[in-house]
Design a protein around this nucleic acid. Structure first.
Lengths: 331, 331
DNA sequence: TTGTATGCGTTATCAG
DNA sequence: CTGATAACGCATACAA
């Protein structure tokens, strides 16, 4: 479907110049509103430009004088409610610096990350992304282009990173549940593809309370609402004694809600639920979802700041995004 | 906050050439993997390039041979759940054509549209957007750049447009409510800023059933969840006989839900609700929200197709996006 | 006020 | 296989 229409040759400054009967330099003056030009000449030139539908070449301009910095942004799925806030944060931070944002999505196929990065690299000065490919794969794709990874730790020293303080968040969630008397706490984890640090963080947090997490306390779910529902149903079958669940993220928690309704399990009375991410939609459901909340907007802003550092030639940094346990109605 | 770091002069082909002891042309060959080059020379050049951290200038490249088409996308608020799907549709459609997407947001300030468009125009080959500024304002900002407007009708013949079949949707919604026995049907409208066609469509649809819409049947709301709640509370006070409401969009419907809970009004028993937009989150709430649904993803795809037409020099088109009344639990 | 000449970094053409 | 040389479209000294 890659249609390329033969460009009927651009209209250039010279074309306008010829039409207006002046030199291309004069046209440049008129177009860019430089002072030193006769108003009448200017009018004529502008008119000629309009007639020819002249538009300056951004390439030629960029070549002559560095234009705005362009930042490439890679996300995995624009429709996943996790990302809009992140994207908004990036766009705003970029705009504050006068940067432009080139966005692209891997459409939930992390294998496409290298490709997407390579494509972006051709047009962007720096790339930031919520990336899950291994460091060396990313490095190869970026090929020297400054890169900032959000949402996880990175090993590659050249990359900037905005990590998430998962441990602290999960610890707070577990501590809260334990304080409320829960002992049999399950987790709905996601298969792969996602951050692999949530589960160990959960296990460690439980251990801190002398609670052992046996395998049957963890149900793996596909990363969709229905996946969460299925996992909870499964968990509820194998471990009917579970009185609370921590989910990999809010989307899976939504699945828990759905399954709970089917199973006639009341939240939070029969089973407490704590999610992860702190999506705004958690407030809309009933009961409102408690969650380990991330300031995704801020994550985006930090990533942009990190990108600016890299661009300035400063050494890559490792920012850590704090998290906050937000207790609403579900736990 | 507009920091510009002094670019320490780019590393160019010539720098690499000097370092590798070859001509800049040979470097070009090595970089672009052209065949005609000695493997050893190539290795040396690539090594030099790596050491210097050389990266080709997209401007110079673009100047010499037209690179990928860049599409500018303007939305008013990335976090508004209406847009992510639209954006996803645009990104996917663009990618299918090998285009790149430059995104920017007016951050709910429609007055910024001209500025945003002007900025985008410097880097994009065509711009599409969910725009509410008057046609002539947009035309001035675009300055000859091909422009596609989504979500409303346009007068300017040069613009592409993706309109929404609001009338049909509202007609279906009202017909449905009337068929269910409702007579006193209210509307939660939004002040300004939004599409101004929803309200007249409602009035007309009601008239088709010999129902007159008096002013007290319409409550104006600020375009937020709380705004919707306040408006419903007001409507419910002035017209307690109302048994159904049509809301300007789903977000306002969410507000109706919130207010209904406070007022102890049951949905749909005490009052039926039909929203507009068909946001996915409508499925998550209880009862699931009935809505006049738009295929936002498709809207984006159509807009991109329209952009391609304009770029190809074809005359601007007027696509109409069909809508669908989706009945879930709230009506 | 206007025109001429130069260079920005690449790629392409055409010699060597 | 490699190296000059010429565009690409524009902006900016500098000259007229």
């Amino acid at each position: 479907m890659s249609e390329q229409q033969r460009p009927p040759r651009r209209v250039t400054l010279k074309d306008v110049a010829k039409r207006a009967g002046v030199s291309h330099q004069t046209v440049s003056r008129a177009i860019n509103d430089k002072g030193e030009i006769d108003p009448e000449t200017r009018r004529r030139v502008l008119e000629a430009a309009r007639q020819l539908n002249y538009r300056p070449s951004r390439f030629a301009r960029g070549l002559v004088s560095p234009g705005a910095t362009t930042l490439g942004l890679v996300v995995s799925d624009v429709e996943n409610p996790f990302f809009p806030e992140l994207i908004a944060g990036v766009i705003e931070a970029a705009e504050e610096r006068g940067w432009q944002v080139l966005i692209s999505s891997t459409q939930n196929h992390s294998g496409r990350e290298p490709d997407v990065i390579r494509t972006l690299a051709a047009q962007a000065d720096v790339v930031i992304g919520y990336l899950s490919a291994p460091d060396d794969t990313l490095a190869a794709a970026a090929g020297g282009l400054p890169l900032v990874v959000m949402g996880r730790a990175v090993g590659e020293p050249a990359f900037g990173a905005v990590e998430v303080d998962t441990d602290a968040g999960v610890r707070a969630a577990v501590a809260y549940l334990v304080a409320r008397g829960h002992r049999a706490i399950g987790m709905i984890d996601c298969g792969d593809d996602g951050q692999p640090d949530r589960r160990p963080a959960f296990v460690a947090a439980m251990a801190a309370h002398d609670l052992t997490v046996t395998d049957d306390l963890i149900a793996e779910a596909e990363l969709t609402v229905e996946g969460g529902a299925a996992a909870f149903t499964h968990l509820r079958t194998t471990r009917p004694d579970v009185t609370a669940v921590f989910t990999f993220n809010d989307m899976l928690a939504l699945g828990v809600y759905r399954a709970a309704r089917r199973l006639d399990v009341r939240i939070p009375d029969d089973c407490a639920v704590i999610g992860f991410d702190g999506l705004p939609l958690g407030e809309l459901i009933d009961p409102p979802l408690s969650s380990v909340a991330l300031d995704k907007r801020r994550m985006g802003a930090i990533a942009v700041a990190e990108a600016a550092r890299l661009l300035a030639g400063e050494p890559a940094g490792r920012a850590v995004l704090p998290v906050e346990l937000v207790i609403r109605g579900s736990a």
